[in-house]
Amino acid sequence: MVGVGLRSPHIHQILSEQPDIGWLEIHSENYFTVNSPARQQLRAAASHYPISCHGIGMSLGSADALDKQHLSQLKQLVEEINPIAVSDHLSWSSVDGQYFNDLLPLPYTEEALAHFCHKVELVQDFLGRQLLVENPSSYLSFNHSTIPEWEFLRAVQQRTGCGLLFDLNNIYVSSFNHGFDCQTYLDAIDPRTVKEIHLAGFTVKQFEQGEIWIDTHSKPVSEPVWQLYRQWVRQHFTALGGVPTLIEWDLDIPELGVLLGEADKAQQIIAQEASDGISAA
């Protein structure tokens, strides 16, 4: 099942034309106001499509306490929409209540792991449901980190029982920025814990100090990321069935047809690998 993000330039077209889309993802915080036009549009969309609530505001890795108002608004939204998934990020974005417009990397230490797991458990208890945690893209790392990211993420899942939102583009981007092997990351994750997959495009930036890749969600999915996705589907689809896949596109948003074309590519990969798996069996 392949979906696309529900973004403001496409809402009216999606509601009026009801194209063949497997599901829609929203950024939860955009729909917190109960009687807003956006919430009304979401209700209309939810009557036709499964919805996934993807958050960017929990700041789970921050030393700040969880924002009770934020959690209450999220719970109300979740109870009304009954989404297929609720997710947020392996990151932090606040200090002393001051929020930054970014998802910042954690130091991968035992102390940070215990703290992050405690936050995830609090959220799951409050919502009364499983949370999905997404692996980040990152552009710096901490010298005192002692745990590889893939082991840290795996430990979060094992300790809390959360699910994983596996972003293959983030793995590819971070593998270049930090010099690790994508295959090492993929091999470390139990596929049974992956409940959603994200695919997106990235931007290459050149600086005097060198090249960096940035997860901008502003381009089509790159061919290497398609290959990672094909590999993942080939290895795990037959055994586990389909995992919801999302095409993310948040900047320089194109016409809806472009997103649907990307979603169709993912659907074709699923169909091909499923067919090959059946034939092999």
Rank of each mutant, 00 (worst) to 15 (best):
G161E: 04
Q183P: 07
L140V: 06
S8I: 13
V258Y: 04
L71W: 03
H54T: 05
A65I: 11
A271T: 08
H217L: 06
N101A: 03
G210N: 05
I21Y: 01
E273C: 06
V123M: 07
R7L: 05
Y49D: 04
Q13G: 12
E211T: 12
L228H: 01
A38E: 13
N101Y: 07
Q267M: 13
Q209D: 03
S91Y: 01
S275A: 14
H27V: 11
S47I: 13
K68C: 15
A239I: 14
E80R: 10
V204T: 10
A65T: 14
S87F: 06
E25W: 03
C53W: 04
S87A: 11
S59I: 06
S222P: 04
L240E: 09
A271W: 07
G257D: 12
A38D: 13
S87E: 06
A263S: 02
P19G: 09
V243C: 04
I81T: 05
L6N: 06
L260I: 15
A200G: 06
P83M: 10
E121T: 03
H70K: 14
I11N: 15
N30M: 03
D64V: 02
W213G: 01
P136F: 14
G163M: 07
D102N: 05
L74P: 01
E29Q: 03
S137A: 11
I247Y: 01
W226K: 03
N35M: 12
F237P: 11
I270Q: 11
E273W: 10
K219D: 08
V221R: 06
E273F: 02
E121V: 00
R234C: 08
S94A: 08
Q209M: 11
Q76D: 13
Q130P: 03
P105R: 00
V2G: 07
Q209H: 10
S175H: 02
